[in-house]
């Protein structure tokens, strides 16, 4: 079984980083995984997205037309990806940056004010982790312990001092109840 997650938002919202955390989690449980970024000039100020695919077998295409889940961090991303997610897939929406409800009824949608939650923790840059936690909670792809290890791995080295705040963000995302 293969799972494909698209993470999309503005450049600077930590789209690529949170994809990396998800990839680390998949690696943690011994799966195959591919992290595929949109790259190049469009990253300057524009939109950014990445696709994380994990599977028990060799992964084919690093990008898919219809992902099994999507984390959308802003309005343009919601508009673009809501229709793309497969039936019964997951759509995690940042209501702090979107201005409409999810229309589809045949997917699992989790809508949460992720930026506000992140700001309460003290740093709106944690929006991405709050949203990832919400996806993991809804989908049960991985356990919370695996996510914590993945988060630490992703922050290894230069970003070590950010671990504590990120852990809180993860916790808040898991705790969120609509």
């Amino acid at each position: 079984m293969q799972n494909e997650t698209v993470i999309a938002g503005f450049g600077g919202q930590g789209v690529l980083f949170v994809g990396k955390v998800l990839a680390h989690a998949a690696l943690e449980v011994g799966m195959e995984v591919t992290w595929f970024p949109s790259y190049g000039p469009e990253m300057r100020g524009g939109t950014a997205n990445c696709t994380v695919i994990f599977s028990n077998e060799e992964i084919g295409s690093p990008q898919v037309l219809n992902p099994t889940s999507a984390i959308v961090m802003n309005q343009p991303s919601l508009d673009k990806y809501e229709d793309m997610v497969v039936k019964d897939g997951y759509l995690i929406v940042n209501t702090s940056m979107t201005n409409r409800e999810v229309k589809r009824k045949d997917i699992h949608a989790v809508c949460l004010p992720a930026t506000e939650i992140a700001e309460e923790i003290g740093d709106k840059r944690l929006t991405n982790i709050v949203m990832l936690a919400a996806l993991i909670k809804a989908s049960d792809f991985f356990g919370q312990a695996e996510m914590e290890t993945a988060l630490k791995k992703s922050l290894e080295g230069k970003k070590n001092d950010l671990v504590a705040a990120n852990m809180i963000a993860l916790q808040k995302g898991f705790e969120f109840r609509a």
């Binding site: 595929f36 970024p37 790259y39 690093p62």
Partner: peptide, 10 residues
């Protein structure tokens, strides 16, 4: 190609 250069995998 660019995708293999830019992607991450284990």
């Amino acid at each position: 190609d660019g995708s293999i250069g830019q992607m991450m995998e284990p």
